[in-house]
Design a protein around this nucleic acid. Sequence first.
RNA 1: GGGCCCGUAGCUCAGUCGGUUCAGAGUGCCAGCCUGUCAAGCUGGAAGUCGCGGGUUCAAGUCCCGUCGGGCCCGCCA
Length: 597
Amino acid sequence: MATRADWQRTHWCGEVRKADVGGEMTFNGWVRRRRDHGGLIFVDLVDRTGLCQVVFDPSECPDAHATAGGLRGEYVLSVSGVLAARSDETVNPRLETGEVELRARRAEVLNPSETPPFSLTEEDAAADEMIRLRYRYLDLRTPRMQRNLRLRHRAAQAARSYLDAQGFWEVETPMLFRQTPEGARDYLVPSRVNPGHFYALPQSPQIMKQLLMVAGMERYYQLARCLRDEDLRRDRQPEHTQIDMELAFVTREDILTVTEGLFRAIFRETIGYELPDPFPRMTHAEAVAKYGTDKPDTRYGMELTDLGDIAAQCEFRVFASAVQSGGQVKAIAAPGGAQWGRMVMDRITEELQRETRAKGLAWIALLDEGPKSPIAKFFTDEQLRDLIARTGANPGDMVLMVADQPDVVAEALDRLRRKLADRLGLIPEGVFSPLWVLDFPMFAWSEDEGRWDAEHHPFCMPHPDDIDLIESDPGKVRAQAYDVVMNGDELGSGSIRIHRRDIQQRIFSMLGITAEQAEERFGFLLKAFEYGTPPHGGIAPGFDRIVMWLCGEPNIREVMAFPKTQTAQCLMSGAPSMVDDRLLRDLHIKLDLPPEG
RNA sequence: GGGCCCGUAGCUCAGUCGGUUCAGAGUGCCAGCCUGUCAAGCUGGAAGUCGCGGGUUCAAGUCCCGUCGGGCCCGCCA
């Protein structure tokens, strides 16, 4: 039988306390810092749990002291000794282990290290992300990244144990699947044994999880890798993880309830934060009307107010004509913004024009001596009073107004609202504000393609009251689709699915998919639906985004072990790379590259 | 495909109006000294293709154009 080697760990660096004093123990870890006094040498030894000071005293153990003299940063060390209490003057209150230290009797370098290219200690300035990604295995050794990955693990465990307790089965679905035409660009994988044929890596297990409902799994979940060949953002990577869920014999309420429970479990068991019970809700129409977006940040106010009726009657032509031509005039009130002079407002306007389709920005500064505005002269005193009252603005605030078509007004005021809230410091720290956005529209008109598109996806069940509108007024059809939004980020999206063939057919034909095309693309799914499909629905919370919020990180790269850059490359491994011609030949693939330069 | 920001020592950065003090600081690294430090201290040392290419100029880290790399955003992502 194998026995413990004499260098193997008996205790964790970060876990020893005063109660352990007097114990003989062995640490395994990395040398973070060495303080050599000529006589005494102090070494900060670090493992996954934290840091403990090791003392090498030449009078106690010359051999170990000699070894310590050669230690450098990130050497892998095994050290044995007796844990001692520190004297009162030498206690370090900033360390969890600051009341104790290991007095080394034996030290063995398990492996030396090159000098790391950047500092791994908490207090040093963070290295540039480029170099962190090139040496990701070192970056992951920093306290920040160890904490992030530990929290990510805890979140995954919380999700699994909650879903298990709720009767979900974890089922794995294939990474090599059939390419289906909807949605994002696919990553393709050539099949060697089927020349000219390709698998697609799943954008999500959407179709497979619905098949699992047909298959009688009743409640399925999976921490599913999802792959999309689209451009990256701070919260979008080519591969990400969803807590993919699907439930049979349920209504929307069941799914919202179980999802809220999931979020509450995760936030409670990772960071001890209690999310509201239940989550606030609003319809998609309400979200767009009040916030100009389908993922409002509800940590602060500054809601949009409609000034259409007042604007229609005023003398300001831009406002009146916007309303006449079917547009809107809406406003937000920026608390304390009245102090911004014309220069600041000109800059804000210019920025808004550059970043959105808004053509202009009107404003009223509520100064102590009364409202001041370039457009005040176009309003009667009463109109001005009504308008200001409507926005809920107080003295000292700035009212900002945009007039245009509804989508432009929404885009502009959403942008302004977020930007000004940030600038005015209105966004509270440490607050998580979840929200359900319900009743998304079923269809969105695609100007490019000249037809209706599925807003969520084509298997999404329309609202029962709206089924008769599918053909007559598709823009009015609400879907039984819902998003869970938190602090202005979409954290999950789901729907009740269509389980009736006739409705599915009507949706397909609205989307311009013929019966033949549907058969060609989704025939296997539609066939499955003919064999006793239960009513079902699901949701897929984005795991990386959740962990990003738990960690307080600004992007999901900080909570992924090995993320890609904005050009979808791995700076550590050099992926993607060219491959050997022989590999391509085996796959029957010929390159047709654009000319260099 | 487009807009904006960034690139100077291993790392983090400063570098004004283009000019001899413009190749700099801190830290890290190397060497020596040092027995209670914990971002140890003291002394000394090594360390640069100013991302790359071109242009303007008597003179470019600095100005212009291009390009490469990184980031944020728009498009895109049901």
